[in-house]
Nucleic acid binder design. Structure first.
Lengths: 320, 320
DNA sequence: AACGATTGCGCAAACGATTGCGGTTGATTT
DNA sequence: AAATCAACCGCAATCGTTTGCGCAATCGTT
């Protein structure tokens, strides 16, 4: 059955289509009486204007694309929830594009966004991405972009993340106070900006007399192996982990070696899984929902404003 | 700067807009020569037709909505990845709508889908949902719907999930063989279909002489508390957990009571986190990616077909 | 050579909502 | 009483692409 159009309503009510349109949009030109009559019939008939036609005419999609490498088990789900909630409240919808951490797929995704005329892009870069040239097209078309989570420096695009160096420094200072003389620090892939920043912050704050064993782990398993080795070799009992995935490996090794209670584990976590597994875990609460909301808020701001200005937003975190 | 249109291209090439359109879509009516000329210029100028206009005209959005309660830490991220990958390969995009496990929000989401004219809906019900009346509108408009994960019986809509009862039965049989006489079984919220099905399958397969202590846990913490109690009360050393979240609570309790090595843990898991934390874990590999792909494939099939037929798809699983 | 079939392209009408502009009322002002 | 003005509503163009139909040119057949 062919769906109703604004014309059908207009014919039925003996008014013009333009009047129906304006009435439905609460345009002040339409008298209260007519407006109510239109709106009521629309409600009764469950009529909704074809948003295709409207968007086409108004040149807006009410769509925000979220482009990211993959939906890791922790953090990212929260980010997405934060984003969609914020966007929904403002009558925008969330589109998910996955790059699988491949640069070509990122380019492709960005192009698709342009073709679909999304109103904005929230982008978490994949690790191979070294520059932002592929975003030029967005700039010329005028699609605002906000970088989040995995970002690189840019003087064109807004970004949202936590102050990684500062937070890692807090972790180091906490370890300083614990009177340990050796710590195993496990970061993510070395080329990641996030790894670099946190490493810098960690080292510049850590007491000089503490020996550090470093590892760059790409997953839980590598973290586990390294932590296990360190325990066996040096009886290490203090650990720093850059993410929930890494922390999982650490805690697994600690448990298996039955040194759970003597061990101190510090790192970045969303606080939803890991504290269950280790009572002596101290973590920077890396709350995805907050970041997602902030990123969404920023893109909405950019859409609303005419002159797009860059703005780097730092989310405050605390050590729990 | 105003973006290029098909007319601009046409003027430049001294052909009609219709020819450009057909050339771009590889319509056989257009000679190879003209077709190539058009396509090359389009490539050079990075021209992409306005998909709004095209979709509007063709009455299709190339959008599939995924409607679900929330993005839990495990399983769902994989489902989403499976879906988007499959859809992307077929030139569809993924829209995420979160219901927060609220029935009103589910209705709202479905309505939004109808208004946006999505081409299909993948729906995981929220727990309050008791019937499928709110999907009627989709039926009359002709938007295909596929239920996945959390579903209820329906004779109109296709569904995709694993054979919960059978899989739970496999778990029970495994426990039967282990010569234990007591097991703590932890399910999810009692009203959930998934809980009911797995419980039924589990009990009908479990040896009669084994004593079962049941709990319905809504999160890791409740599972932990119950498991902890059971260990203290009955020295329970065999556990069944319905999900990764529940298993996390179990393993946490087991570890804390230092009965890790003596304990047997069986349940449903995606196999990505839990096997790390407990070496003696046997699990039904509840692979989200496979389910996501199957659901996406089904919705694509429904879109392609003219007469929408219902089909319940059972994903095979194995005990690892 | 005459006639039907095929190929290749343009014309113009959609698709459904929005919106600038202009026209019709009736009320208010001078 | 004429003029001014505001309040309301309709006309028609518009957004950019697709597509049914028609027309001309070319091709092949008897």
């Amino acid at each position: 059955m062919k769906p109703m159009t604004i014309k059908d309503l207009a014919n039925f009510l003996k008014v013009s289509p333009s009047t129906v349109s304006r009435a439905l949009n609460n345009h002040p030109d339409i008298s209260l009486e007519v407006r109510l009559r239109v709106q009521q019939l629309a409600k009764e008939l469950q009529f909704k204007p074809n948003s295709f036609a409207a968007n086409f005419r108004k040149k807006q999609s009410k769509l925000i694309a979220v482009v990211l490498p993959k939906i890791y088990r922790s953090f990212i789900p929260d980010v997405i929830e934060g984003i969609t909630k914020k966007l929904n409240d403002n009558h925008f919808q969330t589109l998910i594009l996955l790059t699988e951490d491949l640069f070509e797929r990122e380019i492709e995704a960005i192009n698709q966004c342009c073709e679909m005329r999304v109103d904005g892009i929230l982008l978490s870069l994949c690790n191979q991405t070294k520059d932002l040239n592929h975003l030029q097209r967005c700039q010329t078309i005028g699609i605002p972009v906000v970088l989040f989570d995995n970002t690189i420096k840019s003087d064109c695009f807004s970004s949202v993340h936590i102050n990684d160096a500062l937070a890692a420094g807090q972790c180091a200072e906490f370890i300083n106070k614990q009177k340990v003389n050796r710590v195993a620090a496990i970061f993510g892939p070395e080329e990641l900006a996030i790894s670099q920043n946190r490493k810098l912050g960690f080292f510049s704050a850590l007491a000089k007399e503490i020996t550090v064993d470093i590892c760059y782990a790409k997953d839980s398993h590598e973290a586990y192996t390294f932590a296990n080795d360190q325990i066996k070799k040096h009886q290490t009992c203090a650990f720093f982990g850059i993410s929930d995935e890494v922390l999982l490996g650490i805690v697994s090794a600690v448990n298996e070696n039955k040194v759970t209670n003597e061990s101190l584990v510090v790192g970045f976590s969303d606080g939803l899984t890991m504290p269950f597994l280790h009572r002596n875990l101290h973590y920077i609460n890396h709350n995805g929902k907050v970041i997602g909301k902030a990123a969404a808020a920023q893109i909405l701001k950019l859409i609303a404003e005419d002159e797009k200005l860059k703005e780097d937003i730092l989310i405050a975190v605390e050590l729990l």
